[in-house]
Design a protein around this nucleic acid. Structure first.
Lengths: 108, 108
DNA sequence: ATTTTGTGCTACTATATGGTTGCAAATATA
DNA sequence: TATATTTGCAACCATATAGTAGCACAAAAT
């Protein structure tokens, strides 16, 4: 099992999805984030580390505090994949349309 | 670590994403799918099992062959989450707009 | 009837993951 | 200066994951 670290891996965990949602409202410190969940500060820190690696999140040091900002652009990768998926689906239905078209012609 | 089995977990693995893409073109047997990848038949079967559990994929027995169909509707869950995310982002920018608006007013 | 083929299922392995605990470093506060 | 707070980091644990190999069973093909 190679260590993957992509956006899809990042959003696989429900806590990380929640953190992402939370950060849409603005930057927060690890402590503040942990306060919103049942997770411990360290657990949240680990999730933030993973999110940092995927560049979904960006650190900003401010004295002893670290503010975690969301990099919303990264989310576009998922959107892109979904778009690609939907396009392939459309192609398939076009093929199905062709089949139905041909059946219609035959019936004539 | 609880065993999660949701769509997000399902698309976390690149092989599974590839399988999903492959099945947009139509149903395939495990052997046929494995033929498209470097993965072994057993590995693909495991992925199909996971995809079945999330209802992304549906089995159709045909003699000794099993055809795996895509349930494209499940993918909408991801779309829905993304939509929710984007909506939250918009809200944040609206708040930012309000701040700027207020600053403008103050300057007057 | 025998062989081949397609598949699922059950170990088994190595590695990843999510989480906890404890410690150290840096900054803020008294 | 002494103490409290915020954080990262490393060690450790239990479980999940991805993959392999082998067996069993049913359906086709010979």
């Amino acid at each position: 099992m190679k260590t993957r670290r992509d956006v899809f891996q990042a959003i696989a965990d429900p806590t990380r999805r929640a953190i992402i949602m939370l950060l849409t409202a603005g930057a927060l410190t690890p402590n503040a984030i942990a306060g919103h969940f049942n997770s411990s500060r360290q657990a949240v820190s680990k999730h933030l580390h993973i999110l940092s690696e995927c560049e979904i999140v960006r650190q900003e040091q401010r004295g002893r505090e670290i503010h975690y900002h969301l990099n919303a652009d990264k989310m576009k990768e998922i959107e892109k994949w979904l778009e690609q998926f939907k396009q392939l689906l459309t192609k398939r239905f076009n093929q199905l349309d062709n089949v139905l078209e041909q059946l219609k012609l035959k019936r004539k």
